[in-house]
Write a protein that binds this DNA or RNA. Sequence first.
DNA 1: GTATTTGCAAAGTTTTTGCACGTGG
DNA 2: CCACGTGCAAAAACTTTGCAAATAC
Lengths: 134, 134
Amino acid sequence: VSTSAEDRLRAAGHRVTPQRVAVLEALETLRHGTPDEIHAEVCRHHEINLSTVYRTLELLNEIGLVRHAHLSDRAPTYHSVSGHEHAHLVCRGCGASRSLTRQDLDLSALERSTGFAVDFGHLSVFGLCGECQR
Amino acid sequence: VSTSAEDRLRAAGHRVTPQRVAVLEALETLRHGTPDEIHAEVCRHHEINLSTVYRTLELLNEIGLVRHAHLSDRAPTYHSVSGHEHAHLVCRGCGASRSLTRQDLDLSALERSTGFAVDFGHLSVFGLCGECQR
DNA sequence: GTATTTGCAAAGTTTTTGCACGTGG
DNA sequence: CCACGTGCAAAAACTTTGCAAATAC
């Protein structure tokens, strides 16, 4: 977990606790995860309560260190924003998911015409991949 | 509820029941709704169990008569496909949501480069509207 | 030292499931 | 008639909350 993440926490007036650091570490390892999956990953190394995971993810989301998207119809999937911000392209058939950059999916026309600032990291595009279309 | 909807049900080997018709009617009235809201709307005129609403929506989704999107972080929102298929643009600030057509958001480049067939009706784009950016 | 954060247990919300009864075709 | 669909009640899945104890700073 980069120092900048800890600075971002402190800058926003929050404390740097082992649990918060552990959640960020788990997200680096997993790349993506539901609250439950993140909890399980953290538990491989530390103790943490599931409620704390929820509260931590909410906080990290608020200060922009993580984003979440709905990759399945059930629990939301969180991912770290430490790398480049990315959206997801998910196949309903096989469940495969790949990252999209702003170059893959150009929203500038939409943003210009609507005046919206799109939350790219939250965006999930569902469909059927080439394989599954048959 | 158009006859074609009933035909679609029968063609897919399902029965046309009053409950299924009522759910489709409720969606015409509401335009959008969570399972709970749809249940409430149906109950204004008929009796129906909430489980049946869930099961019906799942079925209608399967055969393509309705689509759902995640307009909030909680319950999914269903909408009828009887009109034109549309995606949603939702503001996190004020909660306002507007429809998007395929002209508003051109996915042809993405579909060409990835080979995906995008489920446009499921797509929700989140962000901040012009107002809320201030 | 003290305001924030955590763990725990309990409750809240949303969705799914098993099964007996009812019904569309 | 009878396979499919529904209602009901119970369970499962997911998330939030109140409060006392622990801890970051």
